[in-house]
Nucleic acid binder design. Structure first.
Lengths: 349, 349
DNA sequence: CAAAAATTGATTGACGTCTATCAAACCCCC
DNA sequence: GGGGGTTTGATAGACGTCAATCAATTTTTG
């Protein structure tokens, strides 16, 4: 019951190993008859190429580079940690991961990091900004034969090979639906809080919120978004004023970061607490969920995205097909009860 | 910049390949001095054993068996499909998956399937029932050196190596929290629908619902559960009567299967529609979500569970440590907006 | 029919690790 | 310092595939 090798295939097809190899890897010239017999034998025996032996023989070693924003956002830190955690595991499978950090939202730095990718690199994943410079840099890399995928934040779709990340408009719609559920069939007033409206992901989420709440009856209205630059201090400053101005606010949708400030403001808030949705599972948002100050977290599961990215990068590097990631990467909804445990250290046998 | 091999390590440590190998795989006898020098060299060079070459050389081939319930429940079909889909992929990585179906909820058949596992099998995953016979069968397998993990439904924790699946009580609590959110701060009446209360997963979910809604103010009350045996026809029969008996029902929590019937009943239902939560993303529940008759689906992401199970089985078979799956396997909440697309065919390059 | 071209077979040496064997070198103890 | 045990080195043949070479055979072509 040993699994068949290419030698078995050759024997079954009545040809030499060399010919079977030529068919399998279509190289050299093979007559139609031999080709058919080999393919038949492959089908009959259920032969599947041993990837591990193949990789060994080809001395195939993948170099993948992740270009990630650095910054004190917990989300980026989590993303970074997720890549770092995969590195030693992948190392044993002949895949080397390297990480380059760039200042967040800096298109020049990103383009520079892309340009700096060496020839030995097989594929690049970048948390992209959608700018001319980055588009050009990605195109240049592709011309050098190095595929680029985008992670978390997309670039121009025509230049990258795949995008691994959630659709932010969908995320916003999901938040809107939760708002609607939380309002029952009552009217309401939702305050969106963004980092900056220039950021396309924030804008998309806000658009999604509008999509979902348009035409609710009775109406759930949406206030103009306040911008806190993803900073907790600005949140502490601006949010109380906004809440004071409109005491009838029944929902808060925090689209970006700075949620430490949000948490503090809500803790001090008098009166009925607005239904509060925030983004990304981080220490702060976990605290908010457990403490009951945040009602729901919309998360993109960065660790899963990273694993998925590596899968797709392998497929690109080997020229195989891959599953369209858009199908299974959707924003996750966490409430207090289904929030996953933090950490997750390996358990000894 | 080739990655270091064990030969490089030996050279750096100033010992022979044989000695380095003895240290790495601790076999034979090695002096403390040599051992230290080799370990130092491993650390210095950042040597990581090439798993693929190692597997090849050991002719390590894993045989994993999945023992799954058969039945016309879409969930089990999805689980089956998920395993079947992984099979060819894993095949290329020297892992053979085989599936054995047993009649659902039949402990004898399950125990028989466990007993029938051959010596060449390295690890077994079973959707278990928590019964004496199954416990004994698992223990017997373990005694033969074949580890057993449970999938989706747990057995006695002391006999299995790991459980891959959601905590059903948590799932029930999650449903309860959604109910609470949907009720705003209003009173309500929730009707739970189970397959059978003997099934521990259904009982756990129901308990979770009670946990979450206990002490809500004003009270959200929970009716006694009706049992529809996971059958759509019984659902069509019993549910309308239950709804007629208590027109003030404001929420429905469908804990098991038979949701085709639920969908039809809700479509015909007059008056305000109860907030409806169901389990498992299947064609029927997708339809319910898109059509707006179901409000939320709690899903256990079977495909992800299967991949996770294979990972853990590999770790068990090789004697490595594995991550505690309980940390990241939590019930997912889907609403209409964040529901993943069906299918997910591979995309060509 | 002969020459040219296409196809095939046989073989070889990697790739990095595992496993085993045998002889040589070293250590400790009496 | 000699004997017994322990540690070490050197080496070789797998594992399944890749990639290449060269000679032998078949087919095509003029």
């Amino acid at each position: 019951m040993r699994r068949p090798t290419l030698n078995d295939v050759a024997r079954a097809a009545g040809v030499s190993y060399a010919t079977a190899d030529r068919v399998l890897n279509n190289r050299g010239s093979v007559s139609g008859k031999s080709r058919r017999r080999v393919q038949q034998a492959i089908a009959d025996l259920g032969y599947v190429r041993d990837q591990q032996a193949a990789n060994l023989s080809r001395r195939r070693q993948f170099q993948f580079r992740f270009i990630l924003p650095i910054g004190n956002h917990s989300f980026f830190q989590a993303l970074h940690a997720a890549v770092a955690e995969e590195a030693p595991v992948q190392r044993g499978d002949r895949v080397d991961l390297s990480i380059v950090g760039t200042p967040a939202l800096n298109a020049d730095a990103q383009a520079a990091a892309l340009d700096a990718v060496g020839e030995d690199c097989d594929c690049v994943a970048v948390v992209a900004t959608r700018t001319e410079r980055v588009t050009a840099a990605i195109r240049a890399l592709d011309a050098r034969g190095i595929g680029v995928i985008t992670l978390v934040s997309d670039a121009a779709p025509e230049v990258r090979r795949a995008y691994i990340g959630i659709d932010n408009r969908t995320a916003g719609r999901t938040a809107g639906r939760l708002m609607e559920i939380a309002h029952g069939a009552r009217a309401g007033l939702v305050l969106p809080i963004v980092g900056a409206l220039q950021a396309s992901d924030h804008r998309d989420r806000l658009d999604g919120l509008h999509d979902a709440l348009a035409g609710t009856m009775p109406a759930i209205e949406i206030l103009p978004a306040i911008s806190v630059q993803d900073r907790a201090d600005l949140m502490r400053d601006m949010l109380p004023r906004a809440l004071a101005a409109r005491p009838d606010i029944s929902g808060i949708y925090s689209i970006g970061a700075g949620n430490r400030g949000l948490l503090e403001v809500l803790a001090r808030h008098r009166g009925p607490r607005p239904f509060t949705i925030v983004h990304e599972l981080t220490p702060v948002t976990r605290e908010g969920l457990s403490g009951g100050l945040f009602d729901a977290v919309i998360d993109q599961k960065p660790a899963q995205e990273v694993r998925r990215a590596i899968e797709v990068m392998k497929a690109i590097a080997t020229g195989n097909a891959w599953r369209d990631p858009a199908r299974d990467i959707t924003p996750a909804i966490y409430v207090k009860e289904n929030m996953p445990l933090e950490g997750g250290s390996p358990r000894a046998l």
